[in-house]
């Protein structure tokens, strides 16, 4: 073996050694539980989910043949879609401003935009309950101004869950967009303006296409976060929002049907991965 090959071999070994702790940690905390979850979804009884035993497809049969679970899956996708669209629309101007501003406060402003991440999403959900509740800020203002007679139901339904999720995911969307806005270049905008393009045209022909990768990444990120959300839909939905996350929780802790909960989780994973695959295909096609 020549020295060059040996050193390449050696550096590969070093690389492997460096990766090992991370791989082991991932394997123990992520891959192993996932395999176990997969196994549990084929168990015939709650106890079988732990101790092995027989294999059966009955949980999948339940999930796939019961129209209610199709409805739940549909609700989950609709919630994810709505949240992703509105989060992106609301975050886009903020991200664009932060990316283009030359203010010396830029760092501070960016920090402010993502500061909500310092607070747990549970706390922020409770904040929204205070704002949207029957005796919350909005309802008491409306009543004080005599704009409404009774209470306007703003929470304990999917509207409340959607609103809270949008606000909670906005910092993620802003961060994802900022990192995806690398291709934005003010010189291009100036050139377009010099050639006679008005501001709208500059936006639609230059800024929007160049920022699209960031926008699409943010949309995907928020969509995936939203369809796996559990706490906010549960607290803000008043029990009326049935999504995969809440159903998994119910089956696992209330009715103790662990195999069914596992099968629903696998379904959620399948949903995730198909969305990501389709999305990345589309993204690549768009960029080509």
């Amino acid at each position: 073996m020549n020295p060059a090959a040996r050193s390449a071999d050696g550096s590969r070994r070093v690389l492997l050694m460096l990766l090992l702790p991370g791989l082991v940690a991932l394997g123990v905390t992520f891959v192993l539980p996932l395999l176990w979850l997969f196994r549990a979804s084929f168990a015939s009884s709650a106890i079988g989910a732990f101790s092995g035993g027989d294999w059966t497809l009955s949980s999948y049969e339940t999930v796939l043949t019961d129209p209610f679970y199709w409805l739940v899956a549909w609700n989950t996708l609709v919630l994810g879609f709505n949240v992703a669209v509105f989060t992106v629309i609301l975050s886009y101007p903020i991200a664009l401003f932060l990316a283009r501003t030359e203010s010396r406060w830029r760092g501070v402003l960016t920090a402010l935009a993502v500061a909500p991440l310092l607070t747990s999403s549970v706390v922020r959900t409770y904040g929204w309950m205070v704002i949207l509740g029957d005796q919350g800020v909005i309802n008491s203002t409306l009543q004080a101004l005599s704009l409404t007679d009774g209470v306007v139901r703003l929470t304990n339904n999917s509207f409340g869950a959607t609103v809270a999720l949008i606000e909670i995911f906005m910092p993620y969307a802003i961060l994802a967009m900022l990192s995806g806005f690398g291709r934005l270049n003010t010189q291009l905008e100036e050139a377009a303006a010099m050639l006679g393009a008005n501001r709208l045209k500059v936006f639609t022909r230059i800024i929007l296409p160049l920022s699209l990768p960031g926008v699409l990444t943010a949309a995907l990120l928020v969509f995936v976060l939203a369809i796996s959300a559990f706490v906010t839909p549960r607290l803000m939905g008043g029990g009326r929002v049935f999504v995969l996350g809440t159903e998994v929780y119910n089956e696992a802790t209330v009715t103790l049907n662990w195999p069914l909960a596992a099968a629903l989780s696998v379904l959620l994973l399948v949903l995730f991965s198909s969305v990501i695959v389709i999305y990345q295909r589309a993204l690549r096609a768009l960029e080509a």
Binding site: Y126, M129, G238
Partner: peptide, 10 residues
């Protein structure tokens, strides 16, 4: 049911 404001009191 129509009287119920929340099924998931928090």
């Amino acid at each position: 049911a129509p009287n119920v404001s929340t099924w998931e009191p928090a």
